[in-house]
Design a protein around this nucleic acid. Sequence first.
DNA 1: TCAGCTTACGGCTCACGTAACAATA
DNA 2: TATTGTTACGTGAGCCGTAAGCTGA
Lengths: 304, 304
Amino acid sequence: MDLKQLKSLISVVENNLNISQAADQLHLVQSAVSQQISRLEEEIGVKLFNRKGKRLAGLTPVGDEIVAYAYRTLANANSILEIAHDHINEFEGMLRIGTTHTQAQYILPPVIKAFSQEYPEVELQIHQGTPQQLVTKALHDEVDFAICTEALSESKDLVSMPSYNWNRSLITLKDSALLESDEITLEKLSTYPIVTYVHGFTGREVFNETFKKAGLKPQIVLSAADTDVIKTYVRSGMGVGVIANMTYVTDKDSDLVLRDLSELFPWETTKIAYKKDKYLRRHQQRFIDLFQGSVLKQEGLVAP
Amino acid sequence: MDLKQLKSLISVVENNLNISQAADQLHLVQSAVSQQISRLEEEIGVKLFNRKGKRLAGLTPVGDEIVAYAYRTLANANSILEIAHDHINEFEGMLRIGTTHTQAQYILPPVIKAFSQEYPEVELQIHQGTPQQLVTKALHDEVDFAICTEALSESKDLVSMPSYNWNRSLITLKDSALLESDEITLEKLSTYPIVTYVHGFTGREVFNETFKKAGLKPQIVLSAADTDVIKTYVRSGMGVGVIANMTYVTDKDSDLVLRDLSELFPWETTKIAYKKDKYLRRHQQRFIDLFQGSVLKQEGLVAP
DNA sequence: TCAGCTTACGGCTCACGTAACAATA
DNA sequence: TATTGTTACGTGAGCCGTAAGCTGA
């Protein structure tokens, strides 16, 4: 067995069982990849793919199991290269962060800035996606870190480190009727049209849960993955906004009134996660430190 | 990079940096292995070994890190072969159990018997060693399972499953003065010469701790890794024996008097462990089931 | 008919083995 | 001097690419 064969296998799987595409990706001709797969199958004595005539039509059950271990094998082999590169030049390389819009826009900028001053030669990539997508990307080594609030703890193949706690705030136009009452309750809130995050993002599940437990049904008139969009529609008068508290920017959002809602909702924890067994290069380790340090310094991000 | 290169690397490390020996083990000539290492070092751009002239004189720090990942890479690659073999013939193969004398002699026989009836074609190996050695063997894939009481929980790279609880019993000759008192206490015990297990085996640490906490010092006249040896010396009148309760065999040991000591000492837990991420072949999984099931059936092995 | 996989075959790379050399203990 | 690692070099296995043959859609 050979790493080349495993690479071919994975590439074929990732290209929807299209050997020709896989060959392109691997910079080989199609017959070469075909041979790799054949040899692998012959060597281990098991068919990896179901075939319809000469077309591939899905992985066999064994193939499926083997693909999982092929991923791990290649990931470990890759770590060896990373260790070596790290030792040759700590300051060169790449850092791929997978995160949601909220983090990328409101939390990461100071961290990224500090990091890139320390490591100007390291190429930074920010991959955006839903928490579920980020988990997948981290597991398939398409990003080095995933930073978000949801989904990270659900995979036991990720190491996830709690980074900071946050809760929700209300934003409204200055003349909103909701502001007239001294205390805002879930009940009152549920009588107003609300603009907040879509399913899967930035604590929306917990948001729903909270209303449900109280026997209430919020009126969501619009939901978005993106706090900027929420603010825009609140400004246009569509409803009151419920956003993560760290996304209110005093300078730019002073036309909106802010009310803390942390008495009404549970606290949330944003985490940074990476694949278990991943070798962390020194600059990657440093990024984690910077992230954990920076978020602690920002006001209001840590639970009382 | 190539799996062959990693195999060479590991083999050299395991043969105390002796390339010639490694070559023998790999069924290659010495120059071939030498070249593998050179090519690997050149390819990743890092020296893996410190050299004194032309002799290898230790791993570099990078080399050390890389060796750890090389182990994992090969273990995963190996899992792929196991998956395939398992699918071709679940009933063929090998099962390597690492355990202590106590388990091998008093607990495993019925499990082994049942297993080998189900899988007559599977070759069984019992590797004996100290708990520490068993951990190492399991981590380096020299055994499939380690079964013992100590040391297993200390490595986070092992999955260990609690299997059964046991405590200690006293064995003496029939005319021992210790038997005259109705209740046996730690204090009384400490006035008699004791024969029990050596350091590192079968609960000896906890045994020591228990006396120490009570402010007592037991008189250990002889210690052994092996219950049979302990019994022999108790029979010869050297002292009273403190043994694991599951090692008293009513049929054969009726010349010795048995007293339960579980009021005096904490309970111990024997576990079965395997390397995290290891692929378990079906017959291996079955062995665990048999082991867990069998020990539950045996009387007196589970804490009240 | 086209897209896509397999098979046959030739060339070439590269890993292994032999052998000579170098260096340590 | 014996043991062990490196280097040089010839050979052969095996991988890649070209090209022709199949086979579903």
